[in-house]
Amino acid sequence: MTDTTKKAEAGTSAPRTVAAGKARGSAEARASAHTRLNVTGTLSAEAQAGAEWMNAALDLAQAVYDLRTAKGWSQRQLAEAAGMKQGAISRIEQAGTLPTLPVVLRLADALDAKVVIVVDRDNGEKAIEFTMTPHAAAAA
């Protein structure tokens, strides 16, 4: 189990998960940086909804980072391929923003990936999941 701490990015209110005791930017810190929030327990409905959206942003952040690094691309290279700015890629990979569907589709096209978005209501609770995987031809 990864020990994590929450820190606010300067100038934003979005929390960012950082691996505790790991040097920022190290491979070990990046690999464990996207830890999902536990939304079970006694959270208010509003807090639980916020945690679910944060988990969706974390899922997407990890997927974009994994696919980008598997291609050996920098954030700038992905931004150019997707018609975006490098700062936008950085915010997405840090789970600082949950992009619109058209932006997710542009990222998927640039990364030659398939996107699956699942919105599920199990026992009245909402769960949102993003998955991006390489197309079969790209993975081979």
Rank of each mutant, 00 (worst) to 15 (best):
1 M>L: 13
2 T>L: 11
8 A>T: 14
9 E>M: 08
9 E>W: 08
10 A>V: 15
10 A>Q: 10
15 P>D: 02
17 T>H: 01
18 V>E: 11
18 V>R: 01
24 R>P: 07
25 G>M: 04
29 A>I: 07
29 A>C: 06
29 A>Q: 13
32 S>T: 13
34 H>L: 04
34 H>V: 01
35 T>L: 10
37 L>Q: 07
38 N>C: 05
39 V>E: 11
39 V>K: 05
41 G>S: 06
42 T>Q: 10
43 L>T: 02
43 L>W: 13
44 S>H: 08
45 A>N: 03
46 E>S: 10
48 Q>C: 02
48 Q>M: 05
49 A>G: 06
49 A>S: 13
49 A>T: 11
50 G>H: 10
57 A>G: 02
57 A>E: 05
58 L>H: 05
58 L>Y: 07
59 D>W: 03
60 L>Q: 04
62 Q>L: 04
63 A>E: 06
64 V>Q: 09
65 Y>L: 09
69 T>N: 07
69 T>K: 12
70 A>H: 09
71 K>M: 03
72 G>W: 02
72 G>F: 05
72 G>N: 10
74 S>R: 09
74 S>L: 12
74 S>N: 09
78 L>W: 02
79 A>M: 05
80 E>W: 05
82 A>V: 09
85 K>N: 12
89 I>M: 07
90 S>N: 15
90 S>W: 13
90 S>D: 11
91 R>K: 14
92 I>T: 04
94 Q>Y: 06
94 Q>V: 00
95 A>I: 01
95 A>T: 06
96 G>S: 07
97 T>W: 03
98 L>E: 01
99 P>H: 05
100 T>S: 15
101 L>H: 06
101 L>A: 12
102 P>K: 04
105 L>H: 12
107 L>H: 04
108 A>F: 02
110 A>P: 02
111 L>W: 00
112 D>I: 03
115 V>F: 05
117 I>F: 13
118 V>M: 09
121 R>Y: 06
122 D>G: 03
122 D>Q: 14
122 D>H: 14
124 G>N: 08
126 K>N: 10
126 K>Y: 01
127 A>R: 12
128 I>N: 07
128 I>W: 08
131 T>K: 07
133 T>P: 00
133 T>Q: 08
134 P>R: 08
134 P>N: 07
135 H>M: 12
136 A>S: 11
139 A>G: 03
140 A>F: 05
